[in-house]
């Protein structure tokens, strides 16, 4: 039954007409889809993007394997728990991401970003090699360092490997250069001027180290300040807790089991070497190439101060 009695029943015609229109729509959809992925559209493809020798397609595999979309969004799709990652690379630049990803539980400090710039490949990708030029080029990185530096994040420390971090940054470099047709909309105001923005705390940026050394505080206290400012504490806890690297608490003087099966005493020489050339001795259970070499960034006095700080955190004094 589809029409009133006594009237011509056109139901069959109407249904056929609906199916024909549906067919037209299907053809249109296929045509539009084909036009969406033509080369002439000039959309960036991951096969053409690499970052410091790392591969964007591999990066997409890393992105999926860790289910990043389960907390973040990418092109706006995902879980709304963390910020959208699509344009992040273009905003904060490679050195900030290099500093962030190995120890995602804490926000990078200026020292941590500066350290990444010592790496020629990262500096080349960033297009600058001094921290001041970097912060001028990537104001979002500067804002993050000032407001969040050394604070804890809401993200867990993920045990990403050195390769995974490189690929992941390559993938985000690719998404950052994608044409997303004007999304997300660019804010017209400086959000920091509004009450919704958390007040910037003054504490995470302590006075420059040079000023402190004039007033000879204890060597260990100076070391603690250097360690915080350089970003060491993003990965190393002052307790025995494992963050990204081994905890410093109770470390000094113990016998450290190394990845190659041997043992080494955690004395001044060992700690100094671990700061200057971290890959010389890898502690059992940790991945190599995770920690950058700090020899070029810290002077001998600063390294000695950090060692003194670690010594002060307890352990078996020889």
């Amino acid at each position: 039954m589809s029409c009133a009695p006594g009237e011509p029943c056109e139901e069959g015609v109407k249904r056929r007409r609906a199916l024909i229109v549906l067919g037209i729509m299907g053809a249109l959809f296929i045509a539009l889809s084909a036009a969406s992925f033509l080369d002439s559209r000039n959309q960036v493809v991951p096969a053409t993007v690499s970052y410091a020798g790392y591969d964007a397609i591999e990066g997409k595999r890393v992105f999926q394997a860790w289910n990043c979309m389960g907390c973040h969004t990418i092109v706006g799709n995902g879980a709304y728990f963390g910020p959208d990652l699509t344009k992040l690379y273009g905003k904060v630049g490679p050195a900030w991401m290099e500093a962030f990803l190995p120890s995602a539980g804490a926000w990078p400090t200026s020292g941590a970003v500066q350290l990444q710039l010592q790496n020629a490949a990262v500096a080349a990708e960033a297009g600058v090699d001094s921290i001041d030029a970097y912060l001028a080029k990537y104001p979002a990185a500067a804002e993050r360092i000032t407001r969040r530096g050394a604070h804890a994040t809401l993200m867990p420390n993920l045990p990403l490997s050195r390769e995974e971090i490189g690929h992941l940054i390559a993938f985000l470099k690719y998404t950052s250069s994608m044409n997303t047709e004007g999304w997300p909309p660019k804010p017209r105001v400086d959000g920091l001027a509004f009450a919704q923005a958390a007040p910037t705390s003054a504490s995470p940026q302590p006075a420059p180290i040079a000023a402190q050394s004039a007033e000879p505080a204890s060597e260990a206290a100076r070391g603690a300040a250097v360690a915080r400012d350089t970003g060491c504490t993003a990965c190393h806890a002052s307790s025995t807790q494992r963050l990204v690297g081994p905890g410093w608490g109770g470390l000094y003087g113990t016998e450290v089991a190394l990845a190659d099966g041997s043992k080494a005493p955690a004395d001044d020489a060992y700690l100094t070497e671990s700061i200057v050339a971290p890959d010389a001795k890898i502690v059992a259970g940790f991945a190599p190439h995770m920690m950058p070499a700090y020899g070029t960034m810290l002077d001998e006095g600063e390294i000695a101060a950090i060692v003194a700080y670690i010594r002060s955190l307890g352990g078996e004094h020889p």
Binding site: M1, S2, C3, A4, P5, K14
Partner: peptide
Amino acid sequence: LGRLGTLFLHDAL
């Protein structure tokens, strides 16, 4: 609109 009309027509019938 046409089909919605028919839906009500059916109901009345």
